[in-house]
Amino acid sequence: MKIAFYGSSLLSSYWNGAATYYRGLLRDLAARGYEITFYEPDAFDRQQHRDIDPPEWARSVVYPANEDGLRSVLAQAGAADIVVKANGVGVYDTELLEGIVEHSRSDALRIFWDVDAAATLDEMRADESHVVRRMLPSIDMVLTYGGGPPVVSAYEGFGAALCAPIYNALDPTMHYPVDPDPLFAADLAFLGNRLPDREARVEQFFLEPAAALPERRFLIGGNGWESRPMPDNVRNLGHVYTHQHNAFNCTPLAVLNVARDSMAHVGFSPATRVFEAAGAAACLITDAWEGIEQFLEPDEEVLVARDGRDVADHIASLTPERAAAIGHAALRRALAEHTYAHRGAEVDTLWREHRPKRRSAA
């Protein structure tokens, strides 16, 4: 089956945290026989910060971020058996969702893939004319980056025919233990772009512990932090390319995951960083959110912090031996239950069950 996938970027993780999610899932689906074309706009300098070359398992189409480029790629939707619009493309999001409904064949599955479901749902509640609300009757299924039962219930309440979380996972071909790199030496490292709905939590869970432990070394990576004042013991790396993530995770004593506000509120939303860290056998400290036990066992496979004081206490008491034990336990759990092969199987089952229904309806 042919898939037309309209997303932010497959080739670049620059201001695009979903890149590794797309790569892991689509690589697995390609191995299951799907023929994938990924359409991404030339926007936000992503093409100047590519992490990978166009892969052999998907056709990559980079289009100009203008109306002519938009029309050119939407015209190709009619060739696909499954048409996917991911949220958060950043340009023409409304027109893309409207366009896949207009240009796809009547027998094609139409998918809205929401990689920020909690925030999207907040927007939908506030705006009756929101494009997702308007297009839901013409969408066959909503797949989400996470969110668990609260997100499923909310989407169904808006009239979604089907909503299913497809969680982040580990791609063991991309994320695995490597030798430490002195560039990433630290007691605690955090990787994430500076975003309005994350900054206050980074302040609480990362910068406050750094200020409380001036003798310890802290490391922050991601876009946008260069203008943010930091304690003297925090080193700012800027953008960290995906090929550097394994060393970034393996080298520090521990790495930190901080959920965005909406994801922390809803729960059941492990970020890509969670499974990247597990794949590298890193000791992960995460802020507390509902459902963490579904993915990693607290105190055995992950350390959970309710606030910055908990983070500081974890770092103060953590030994290299315990950090290594937690990291290797997380790796075993991820390989057993949380790889993109597991997630790809879920998507494949959904699509093969519902594609005949769509064809019959058409």
Rank of each mutant, 00 (worst) to 15 (best):
S9Q: 08
A18R: 07
Y21P: 07
Y22S: 04
R27L: 09
D28Y: 07
F38M: 04
P54N: 10
S60C: 09
V62R: 04
N66C: 11
V73T: 02
V73R: 02
G88R: 10
L97F: 05
E98W: 09
V101S: 07
H103V: 00
I111H: 02
D114A: 07
A118K: 12
E123D: 12
E123N: 12
M124E: 07
S129N: 14
M141L: 14
T144R: 02
G148R: 04
G148E: 09
P149R: 11
V151I: 15
G159P: 05
A169C: 06
P172M: 12
L183F: 10
F184W: 07
R194M: 11
E199V: 13
A200P: 00
P209C: 01
A210Y: 03
I220C: 01
N223W: 14
W225C: 02
E226A: 11
S227C: 04
M230L: 15
H239Y: 15
Q244Y: 03
H265D: 15
H265S: 13
V274G: 05
V274R: 08
A278P: 10
G279D: 12
L284V: 06
E293N: 14
R306I: 03
D313A: 15
S317Q: 12
R322V: 06
G327I: 06
R332A: 15
V347T: 10
D348M: 07
T349H: 14
